[in-house]
């Protein structure tokens, strides 16, 4: 089940990667080599096995509902490419 160029385009879009078709085609070989490994896994008779979400037998690592100290706002905003009046500024994400 090798990926098609169409699927590659979709993946690139989901990952917000700007790649043209030539670049995507160049990536297809290594990605499809990877897919071949998964095909091997999928061939195994695992119908009776519960999907493993976590490999360690540990459950219920909780914290109590106790308030701690938040970051000072200057520090919270320190890494932001842009900030103003205590708000993070991002490129417009709705149509104008």
């Amino acid at each position: 089940m090798a990926l098609t160029l169409e699927q590659m385009r979709h993946l690139a879009k989901l990952a917000r990667l700007e790649l043209d078709d030539a670049q995507l085609e160049a990536l297809m070989a290594p990605i499809n080599a990877l897919m071949a490994h998964f095909e091997k896994l999928q061939a195994l008779p695992l119908d009776d096995v519960e999907p493993t979400s976590h490999s360690i037998p540990v459950y219920n690592a909780f914290r109590e509902d106790i308030v701690g100290t938040p970051l000072p706002r200057e520090e919270a905003l320190a890494n932001a490419p842009e900030a103003r009046d205590g708000l993070f500024i991002v490129p417009r994400i709705v149509e104008e």
Binding site: P70, L71, R73, G86, L87, F88
Partner: peptide, 18 residues
């Protein structure tokens, strides 16, 4: 998933942490 307060109406980005 963290100890920040859930209070409503505080100044923006004052109840945040890493």
């Amino acid at each position: 998933f963290c100890a920040c307060p859930t209070r409503f109406g505080d100044a923006p980005n004052t109840n945040v942490c890493p």
